[in-house]
Design a protein around this nucleic acid. Structure first.
Lengths: 211, 211
DNA sequence: CGCTGTGAATGTATTCACAGCG
DNA sequence: CGCTGTGAATACATTCACAGCG
C-alpha cells in the first residue's frame, strides 16, 4: 500500500465538495478537466489523485458524479459519523458549534468541555457543557473520537493529554501553540495568525517588486 | 531575488511566536537546534529558512532572541499595522473579532460588513458594522488593505469582487468555496471541513493498518 | 475520437554533511 | 570546539506525454 500525501487528501476533500455542488445541479458526468477547473488545479493532478484509489473514470467521457462523490466520501472515511468533543466554549468554540457545514458532513459534536463554571451545566442544542475536570468521563461516555480544541494556548496541552488518555484519536487544534500527542493520535493545526502573516509577507513582497 | 516558498513563510511565523515566548521568559540566545525542537522541525530547516534573508546567527553560540524576533517581524511585514475589514458578522465573524491574538500582532479590524439589517448600525468596541452595499465606501474610508471573509459561501465571491474593486490587497477566506481574485491580490483559504476530513482519512488509514 | 490512467520527466522542498567562523 | 551557513544529495510533489480503452 503506497503512502498517500496530505496534499492529495486535501484535494480529495475539495473534489468532494465540488462533486456535491454538481450533484445538486443535477450534473451527471464530469471530466478531469472540468473538475480541475472548478477546484483550481490541473487535469493530470485530478487523475493522479484519483488513480491512487482505483479506476473510477470511463475513458472518452469522464467520471460519474454520484459514483465518484460516494467513492471519495468512502476514501475519506466520512460515510458514517465521527463523534466530536468541542473543548473550549468561548467565542470560537461557540462559532464552531453553530457552524453547520461540517456537522452536515460527518462530524457531530456530542460533548462540550469548558472550565468556566458559568457555562458548565448549560445545554446547547441538546449537548451538555461539562467541566474540563470531567474530561475523561465525558469522552468515555459519549464515545467521542475527535477533539476540536479552541481553548487558550496555555490550557491546550493539559486538556489534550487527558483527552488522549481517555481514547481520543484525532485532534483539530485552533490554539496558537504546538501540541504534543502520541504518534497514533492524528493532529491538525489551524492557526489564523500564520495565515495572516503569510498574507502580510506576500503583500509586502509585492510592494518590494513594484519599486 | 530568489523566490521564498510559502512553507518557509509559515515556519517563520512559527519561529516568531516561539521567539516571543522565549523573550517573555528572558531567554537571550537560542540555537537552531532549540528553535527546531520548539517548533517541531529540524535544525537544518531552521538555518536554511533564515539563511534566505541574511546571516542572523553567531557561530558557536546561536541567535540573539530579540534581534532574530525583530528581524522576522520585519521580514513578515508585521512591524506596522495592517488595516482589516471583517466581512460577515455571524458566529465566526464575532469570534474572529474578539480573538485578540492577531490584533496584538499587527492586524487591526477597522471595519465590519454584514448584510443583516439587525446588525448594521451597531458599534462593536468602537468599530461600526456597515451594510455590505456600502463595501466600497467603507473600504476607502477606513483604508482597509486586508479582508477576512466569514460570510456564507454563496455571498463570498460577490462581496470579494467589490472589496477588490475598492482596493483590498489581501483576503483571508473562511467560506468553504473557491474565490477568484486578480493575480495581484493575495488569497489564503482556511477550510475547517478539509482539516476534519484529513483527520478522518488518517484515522481511517490507521484502522486499516491495524487490521 | 476523447477521455482516463500512468510511467517518465521535471520542479520543488527537505535533509545531509561539512567548510568556516567566533 | 560548537555552532552557523550552504552546496550537494535526497525525497517528494507536480506535470508531461502518450498508450490504451470505451
Amino acid at each position: 500500500m503506497i503512502k498517500i500525501s496530505e496534499y492529495t487528501v486535501r484535494r480529495l476533500s475539495t473534489y468532494r465538495r465540488i462533486l456535491e455542488e454538481l450533484l445538486a445541479d443535477r450534473i451527471d458526468v464530469v471530466s478531469s478537466a472540468q473538475l480541475a477547473e472548478l477546484s483550481g488545479t490541473n487535469p493530470a493532478q485530478v487523475r493522479k489523485d484519483l488513480s491512487y484509489f482505483g479506476n473510477f473514470g470511463k475513458r472518452g467521457s469522464g467520471y460519474r458524479v454520484e459514483v465518484l462523490c460516494q467513492r471519495i466520501r468512502s476514501i475519506l472515511g466520512i460515510e458514517g459519523t465521527w463523534r466530536v468533543v468541542l473543548v473550549g466554549a468561548g467565542n470560537l468554540g461557540t462559532a464552531l458549534f453553530s457552524y453547520k457545514d461540517f456537522s452536515r458532513h460527518g462530524f457531530q459534536i456530542v460533548a462540550i468541555l469548558d472550565s468556566d463554571p458559568e457555562k458548565t451545566g448549560q445545554t446547547w442544542d441538546g449537548v451538555e457543557v461539562s467541566p474540563v475536570k470531567d474530561a475523561e468521563r465525558v469522552v468515555r461516555k459519549t464515545k467521542a473520537e475527535v477533539a476540536i480544541v479552541s481553548t487558550p494556548a496555555v490550557s491546550a496541552q493539559s486538556v489534550v493529554d487527558r483527552l488522549v488518555a481517555a481514547g481520543i484519536r484525532g485532534v483539530l487544534n485552533f490554539a496558537p501553540c504546538k501540541l504534543e500527542v502520541p504518534a497514533q493520535v492524528e493532529l491538525r493545526n489551524v492557526n489564523i495568525t500564520i495565515e495572516l502573516e503569510g498574507l502580510s509577507f506576500a503583500m509586502r513582497s509585492a510592494d518590494e517588486a513594484a519599486k
